[in-house]
Simulated assay, not measured.
Amino acid sequence: MSTLPDPSRHEEVLVSPMYLAGSNGTGDAGFAPVAHWPHHYLDDGPCQLLVTSPDQRIRIGWFGDDFELWRITAGEEAVAAPRWTATFNHVTPAEIVAGLTTALAQDYAESDPYEGNGRFLADPSVYWTDSLQPLLDAGWRRGAAKYGTVEITAPDGQSGVLIDNRLSGWDDETVTFWAGPQGWGTRAEAVFTARTPSHLIAATAAAMASSAPVIRERHMIHREMEPLVTLAPVGPAAAPRVPHAPTPLDVRRTAVTEAVRRATHAPRTAADLRMMAAQSRTTSSAQKRSSALAPGAAAQPPAVSSARQHSR
């Protein structure tokens, strides 16, 4: 038996349905909608990266080594207790997290921080369908559930959501999305507390219902998941490839590049322009004197100033 590594393990493939694709080991897609928000790198703590809205009322935490990989909260003030909390475990595809972070970015852009408002703090609807309508539209069906609960299941039976209205506390976890068989490496879970706005849960549901495949390397697909998913090669004959979202490091590099570009093209002050003109005249005079002293100077073309060369 050959001990050489199998290169096909790192071959990129398109995986569908998305909710069974698992994590690719990074949070890039989930952070992409809020790439312009402040990033706080906390390498020494369990939360390795914290992305916040500019006023810090929305907090998106990445816990790289924990079972609950994502913890997202929102509060009336930066130092206030969270009004609601959403958690996503280590198996949940970051593309599903992006459904929530995209909605949060839009809500914040439309809010007034000085008024302390924002749709991301709205009260949830009393109608459960307002949270799960994208799933119903995609053909997910309501199953037989206990009194006080609502359960919706995907047509393939491999994903679903449970709403438990029997819990009465504001901080109780009342909405649970799941996908895949039970198991540490196979079951994706997303959990929302009772006061989570319905439209944010619906945004997550829409991502769950999406038919768009996602890109993974073959070794990222758990063995138990292989019979449950469809894999297609990434290539000219395959569906258009979805570009990778920028990583937090990419965002920082882009910011530095943009700052250098702005500095390079910034308007010159009057003092700068006078200094450039003086340098141009000095360079031109020196070139003329050098030409006059050199043998055969009369046959040489006239010197051109550095300012004119720069203008060309």
Rank of each mutant, 00 (worst) to 15 (best):
M1L: 12
S2K: 05
L4S: 11
P5C: 03
P7R: 00
H10Y: 13
Y19D: 04
G27F: 03
A29T: 02
G30Y: 04
P33N: 05
V34W: 03
V34E: 02
Y41Q: 10
D43L: 07
C47E: 08
T52V: 15
I58E: 10
R59W: 01
I60K: 04
G61T: 01
W62P: 00
W62Y: 13
D65A: 08
D65F: 03
D66K: 12
D66Y: 12
E76A: 13
A80I: 07
A80C: 08
A81L: 14
A81Q: 12
P82T: 09
N89H: 06
V91E: 02
V91L: 01
V91N: 11
I96N: 00
L104M: 11
A105H: 12
Q106M: 04
D107Q: 05
N117E: 14
N117G: 15
G118R: 10
F120H: 13
Y127K: 11
P134V: 08
P134S: 07
L135Y: 09
R142L: 05
G143N: 05
A145L: 02
Y147H: 03
T149N: 00
D156K: 12
G160K: 04
V161S: 05
V161D: 04
S168N: 09
D172S: 15
T176H: 06
F177K: 11
F177E: 12
G185T: 08
T186H: 01
A188I: 06
E189S: 12
R195D: 03
P197G: 07
S198H: 12
L200E: 07
A203M: 09
A206D: 12
S210R: 05
P213A: 05
A232D: 07
G235D: 15
A237D: 15
V242E: 13
P243I: 04
A245F: 10
R252D: 09
L273C: 02
T282L: 14
Q287D: 13
Q287Y: 01
K288I: 15
R289E: 12
A294E: 07
P301C: 08
V304P: 02
R308E: 14
